[in-house]
Amino acid sequence: MKRAKYYCILLVLILQWCYSSATCPQIATRKDWDGLRPVHVSYLPRPVALVIIQHTVTPTCKTDAECAERVRNIQSYHMESLNYWDIGPSFLIGGNGKVYEGPGWLHVGAHTYGYNSKSIGISFIGNFNNDEPTSKALDAAKALIKCGVENGHLASNYHVVGHRQLIATESPGRKLYNEIRRWSDWLDDVTSIKN
């Protein structure tokens, strides 16, 4: 009887692990995209309850090589021209549907002044005033957010907002903004969270 109970518990743990892992998208690590190490890190208190969607205002990318190059270029600009410690967004998402690691779940990013230490910033690669986000990119963002909740990085009652709702910017671009406004976790009225 004890052995059967042990195997049942083991099976439940395995199934939980498989379910949790299945929803997490593949994340291209800093090593995968040949990123520089950050100059300094500050740890993000978790779980956070806010996800800020933005865009990079760069050309889009559709292949792994193109997207990795865009991420490297963004990191170089952020670190060399803006003197950031690292690339700003927590994660970036390419038109190829791949997620690229920035500061990630654990470290404070530099994506939205006044909100960096209490949010995750997800930046879609492209200019979404002009371009439509790909379904692969949108699905990757949703899977990343779900993964964040399941792994305790995001609070279960988190909200998604557009960059433009918090600061004076066009980001995440009109077409991407129209998309994310239909998400179930969308927060329309940001007065309760606005600095």
Rank of each mutant, 00 (worst) to 15 (best):
V51E: 00
G126A: 01
D131L: 03
N130E: 06
C61A: 04
S81T: 12
T58K: 13
Y100L: 10
S117K: 15
A49N: 12
L82W: 14
T58Y: 10
H111D: 04
G88L: 08
V51N: 00
I122N: 01
L144P: 09
T63G: 09
C61V: 06
S81M: 08
D34H: 14
A140D: 15
P89T: 03
I122C: 00
K142H: 05
N96A: 11
I145D: 09
G126H: 08
A143V: 03
G109S: 02
D34E: 12
G102M: 10
T63H: 02
H78S: 08
S90W: 04
M79E: 11
D139F: 11
S90L: 08
V48F: 07
S76E: 09
N130Q: 02
V57N: 11
V99Y: 03
I122E: 00
S123P: 03
G109D: 11
T56P: 02
A137T: 05
M79T: 13
P59W: 01
G104H: 04
N130R: 08
C147A: 01
I145V: 13
F91K: 02
T56R: 10
M79G: 06
D131G: 00
I93S: 14
G114A: 08
V99Q: 05
V108S: 06
L106E: 14
L36V: 00
H111L: 00
L144H: 00
L44V: 07
F91Y: 07
R70W: 07
